[in-house]
Structure formats: C-alpha cells, structure tokens
Amino acid sequence: MLRKDSADNYTSAIPFDNLPNYVAACKFDSLRGKRIGVPRNVLGAPTDTSTPILEAFEASIAIVKAAGAIIVENTNYTAYQAFRATNSTTVILGADIINNLKKYLDQLVLNPNNVHTLADVSKFTHRFPQEDYPDRITAR
C-alpha cells in the first residue's frame, strides 16, 4: 500500500493509489527493434566505488541487447560538461530538501525519534542500525 503525504511533494505526486505490478507487464521480447542510446561520456572513469555499478550497467546492456534491442553506442550528451558545471539538479533538489525539511518535520503528528532539523536527521541516520552507517555513506 502506498502512503501519500500532502506535505511531501514527492509522495503526493504519485499518480496511483496501488502500486502497479511492473514485473507482470515485462515481456522479454518487448524491446525487440527498439534503439537504446548509451551516452558513454556521462558514465565517467571507473573508480573503486563505481566499478561494480559500471559492471552491473554493462551487464544490463547485454541483457537488453539479448532481448532484441539495438544498442547505439556513444550517443553522448553533448552539453554534459556544461550541465555538470552548473550542478543544477543537485542544487535544486538540495534546496528543496533543506528549505522544506524543518517545516515538514514540524508538521509531523508523530515524531518518535524527535528529529526536527537536518542535523537531527543526520544523527538519527548514523545511530539507526538499518541505515547501515558507515557502510552506506551519508555525507554526500
């Protein structure tokens, strides 16, 4: 069951009340003949932390190709460097979270962990075992 929150613009934008069965809709041959571009310039050079992600990405390309898709290599995002220089997505998302977090937390009817600020959320995340801190880094 999906839970929408009118004070959370991300969950309130969910267009349905029950989660669709996406797996049931998947057909292995539904990609046959579809062209899928791979913008290699967006992927960047592998690092110790990104290597497993890039390996999984490459494996997924092989699966999609086996399903009949036509893989078009190096469909590079020509304005990528300019986009990265502005860092606009991170700035917008970060500003939205920071500006609305305290307001959102203050509106909670139940706040069993007594979190009211971004610092409180960070402290809670570091202490809560299910967050897997420090294995799952939260400083980015």
Rank of each mutant, 00 (worst) to 15 (best):
R127V: 05
V38P: 00
D120V: 07
A119H: 12
A7D: 14
I14D: 02
R127G: 14
I70W: 00
N74C: 04
F57T: 05
Y22V: 10
I63Y: 14
N111A: 12
H116A: 12
I14H: 03
Y77R: 02
A69R: 03
F28V: 05
I61R: 04
T117K: 04
A45N: 05
D17I: 03
T51L: 03
T138P: 01
L93C: 12
Y104C: 13
N21K: 13
L93Y: 13
A79Y: 07
R35E: 07
A25C: 12
G94P: 07
A69F: 03
T125Y: 08
F128P: 06
N74Q: 11
R32K: 14
V121F: 10
K27D: 14
S122F: 09
G37Q: 04
V23T: 10
D106P: 09
Y80G: 01
A59T: 08
F83A: 10
N76P: 06
I98S: 13
N99T: 15
F57C: 07
Y22Q: 04
P52I: 03
Q130F: 12
S6C: 03
K4N: 05
M1L: 13
N21D: 15
P46C: 00
V72K: 13
P20S: 06
A45W: 03
S60V: 07
A95V: 05
V42S: 10
L93N: 14
I70F: 02
A82E: 11
D29P: 03
S30W: 08
Y104V: 15
D120E: 04
N100G: 15
V121N: 06
K65C: 04
G33I: 01
D120A: 08
Y77G: 01
A59G: 06
A56W: 00
R35L: 06
L105Y: 10
Y10G: 12
Y104A: 15
A7G: 09
M1P: 12
Q107I: 01
A56D: 01
K4R: 09
E73H: 02
S30D: 14
A13M: 13
I92R: 10
D17M: 05
C26W: 10
F16D: 01
A79N: 10
L43N: 01
N9M: 11
N114M: 04
V121T: 09
Y80W: 14
T78R: 02
A13D: 12
K65Q: 14
L31V: 08
P15F: 13
D5F: 09
H116T: 12
H116P: 05
A69T: 00
D5I: 09
A56P: 00
R32G: 01
A7R: 15
G68A: 08
V23N: 06
H116R: 15
L93W: 13
L54Q: 03
P46W: 00
F83Y: 10
Y10S: 15
D132S: 14
V72T: 12
G94D: 09
Q81H: 02
R136V: 14
S30G: 11
I14Q: 03
G37R: 04
V38C: 06
A7V: 10
D48W: 04
V38F: 14
L105H: 12
A79G: 06
H116E: 06
K65N: 07
T125M: 13
E55F: 02
T90N: 13
V72P: 02
F28C: 01
N74Y: 04
S12W: 10
N111T: 06
S12K: 12
I36F: 05
N99Y: 15
D48M: 08
I98L: 14
C26T: 07
F57V: 05
